[in-house]
């Protein structure tokens, strides 16, 4: 019964660093390779499956190489009510790929994401770490051109 207060799984100090270390690796390499995840698992004394589990849970981590620019369009309800579907379709048309894909030239990866916290300025999207708000189809082509 002491398990409630006592030894709880995955609580040693090193393991708490996992998220930070995954973030560093993601920034450095652009994605989390199996090699990186194996190294992290070893140095933090964790199983590979636990590292893989955390890496695949967070949508801002990717386990496959990504394009140079990562487009994330919000798929949550407030953006949906402000016609995010039109924005999604416009981006699809402009860069010629569907959500979850990367352009053959490696310029763009395109994902749908959950709320990015700017519902009052919906519809919104992110390209890399920049947030773009109050989107219209016209704005999309300008924004994308800046990244080409």
């Amino acid at each position: 019964m002491n398990k409630i207060n006592g030894e709880i799984y995955m609580q040693n100090k090193e393991q708490k660093e996992l998220l930070v270390r995954l973030g560093e690796a993601q920034n450095k390499f652009g994605y989390l390779s199996e090699k990186v995840m194996i190294e992290l698992a070893e140095s933090l004394d964790m199983s590979i499956s636990d590292v893989y589990g955390v890496a695949t849970f967070y949508s801002f981590f990717s386990i496959r190489p990504q394009g140079r620019n990562i487009i994330r369009i919000c798929k949550s309800v407030p953006c949906f009510l402000k016609n995010s579907q039109v924005i999604i379709e416009t981006v699809e048309k402009e860069i010629g790929i569907k959500p979850g894909e990367t352009t053959p030239n490696g310029k763009f990866s395109f994902h749908l994401t959950n709320c990015i916290g700017v519902c009052d300025k919906a519809p919104a999207m992110m390209i890399n770490s920049e947030v773009y708000i109050d989107l219209t189809p016209n704005k999309i082509s300008q924004i994308l051109k800046a990244h080409k």
């Binding site: 799984y9 964790m46 199983s47 590979i48 636990d50 893989y52 589990g53 695949t56 849970f57």
Partner: peptide, 14 residues
């Protein structure tokens, strides 16, 4: 994890 003291399984995805 707790009985066999191995770490074969994990939970992934969302």
């Amino acid at each position: 994890n707790e009985i066999k003291k191995e770490k074969v399984f994990g939970i992934a995805y969302r």
